[in-house]
Design a protein around this nucleic acid. Structure first.
Lengths: 349, 349
DNA sequence: TAAAAAAAGTGATCAATATCATTTTTATCA
DNA sequence: TGATAAAAATGATATTGATCACTTTTTTTA
């Protein structure tokens, strides 16, 4: 087996050299950088299997490193571990939402370090394993004719990428670079109103494509996609999609269907927002979740429900309580179970 | 010049024979049917230039004849004149909205009959003339490469069809048979809520395509398209579109763009419906109309405005009155003029 | 051009739901 | 596990915009 490559980015010489020593002893091939900029360069040129990175650094701090590596399709799937002093822990949450996979609090001992690296590499392996298994399912979805075969090939050759709960996959207004195929997990797309309230424009699950509209129309993303739970995603770059579209009409057809469906759903949603009561909109949102998850039980925050139905969170709470009293649903914390699907669907107001 | 062909459908022998006699004397080639069914057959087989049709008839009444001929792409562009007894005038309005071009009240004299036919044929000629002139404009829109050239050819070979104000072009739930290219006029698409209120999902003007989503996804129309004013439309049948899609990726691309745009607009509308105040939604609707018509002044009913913004007509009246007081708009009857575009666009609530 | 019909506008009232403030429950972390 | 933070629920209140009933204006038709 070839030695795994580790990149350490850390400005403190003592710590950095110490880490290099330990890792080399443990049999890893180690690259080291003493600031963020050099670190990013090393990452891009050497494609390490895992990256350790300090937060407070001159030139480019750890957040910046993570941000840059995430933007790059060649490096965004590499596991990323932050090294942090206790004081910096406050804003670590944001970092985790940006896509960091783990963090180590300084000072850490040898075993802590080695365990963290090993377990993260193992998780990554499991993930890739899972991805290649998922490809069979996807292969079945994409029927067998020529053009779609090409699409399948591209998907199977791409690396998957894990997005953590609440991590943003793309932002509204970002230049569209990828179509995202959701292998496993749940993702919402939202639009932000001027006053900061958000409206959920879509909710996606296994085998759904995200960002199709922006890529195919050559525009920026028109909404923000956020993982509702840890989600495994395959990124299909625009420049790989485009030649397929001109060559294989079947692929265009496939995407046209996705878009057309999207329009139908959005029109339905429009009608609901315009004229349905809050009760009815709540019911519709619950049914949509049930359909999406293919399960009577699901976990969702009141905030997300509010964004789905376009109402206030307090009103969501009240309406859900009413529904529970009427034995339409059951709820325990953030887990909601639909008890009477038929009656929920027939709700008049 | 070849004699124009006239079809008369009338169960009363005296009237029918009299009409045949007059028309033949006037130099028309005349076909006659004594009931609706035979009339429809004759129309389909002989492609008359104009059809005269009684309303009250055995077998199939005049409305049924009009309905059937409208459904048929070969006959739906033929001018259609109703012959009606005074008593039947009450429900004639519906007939006109179904697409009848004129009506004659029985009894009518020779000159009335001949004038009606002649003026209708002349109008039809003018319309076709206008259509072929419009084709240049459309040719410029559709750029020059191969596939789009094919599309252009199809459009230029198709007959145009005139829809009258308030006439329905297609209904929500109808099997999608055509893409409609709006040559001239204004069309709205609406969805009907269970309680009968309608929400405008789109508004279309010159050079816009209608029904694309249904045709490309092979589904039924997801909304109802109605002419807001007399509108000239080119019908492009599904079976002519489909081979183009598989052959020419440029055409798929063209339609993909249309769909993607549609999604963007609908998402924007969703956000507005969800969180914007009535004032703001009214402002957005007015701006949308201004953009659409490319003119600060436009004619629109309070009812349509209500359907656009998803609010009650009375509230539309009130809000417009407020806007007028604030010198944002001017209004005279159903004609609204935007006075302060910038301030309307910046409206906060 | 007058009469009739339709559309638009207005006032009063009411219901739905947002908002604010607070309490209770659930989830997270050392 | 207990402490702390976050999420959910609840109560009181305010506001928006729908609805109903009616008047006025505009448009259509004979």
């Amino acid at each position: 087996m070839i030695n795994k490559k580790v990149l350490i980015i850390e400005d403190n010489n003592d710590i950095r050299e110490n880490v290099v020593e330990i890792l080399e002893l443990a049999g890893y091939q180690v690259f080291a950088a003493d600031n963020g900029k050099k670190g990013v360069d090393l990452a891009i040129n050497n494609k390490p299997d895992i990256i350790l990175c300090d937060i407070m650094m001159p030139e480019l701090d750890g957040y910046g490193v993570l941000y840059l590596l995430n933007k790059n399709t060649e490096t965004n799937a590499i596991p990323f571990i932050f090294l942090t002093a206790k004081a910096e822990r406050v804003d670590l949450r944001k970092a985790m939402e940006m896509g960091a996979d783990d963090y180590l609090t300084k000072p850490f001992d040898d075993m802590e370090l080695l365990n963290a690296i090993e377990s993260r590499l193992k998780k990554k392996d499991l993930q890739e394993n899972f991805y290649s298994k998922s490809l069979d399912r996807i292969a079945n979805l994409i029927s067998k004719n020529d053009g779609l075969g090409e699409l399948k090939k591209i998907i199977s050759e791409r690396k998957s990428r894990q997005f953590k709960k609440n991590q943003v996959i793309y932002y509204e207004g970002d230049k569209g670079n990828n179509i995202y195929l959701l292998i496993n997990g749940n993702v919402k797309t939202i639009k932000l109103a001027e006053d900061g309230r958000e409206l959920m424009t879509g909710i996606y699950t296994n085998d759904n494509y995200l960002g199709v509209q922006a890529i195919l129309s050559n525009e920026v993303y028109s909404d923000t996609a956020t993982a509702l739970e840890d989600s495994l995603v395959c990124l299909i770059p625009k420049d790989q999609i485009e030649p397929l579209l001109s060559q294989y009409p079947e692929i265009s057809r496939e995407f046209i269907k996705i878009l057309a469906n999207d329009i139908r759903e959005k029109e339905e949603q429009l009608l609901q927002l315009a004229y349905h009561s809050v009760r009815k909109r709540m019911a519709e949102a619950l049914l949509r979740l049930q359909r999406q998850q293919n399960n009577e039980s699901f976990k969702i925050s009141r905030e997300d429900l509010a964004a789905m139905a376009g109402i206030a969170t307090e009103t969501v709470s009240r309406t859900l309580s009413d529904f529970k009293d009427e034995n339409l649903i059951d709820k325990k914390g953030s887990i909601i179970t639909i008890l009477d699907l038929a009656r929920l669907a027939k709700m008049k107001n």
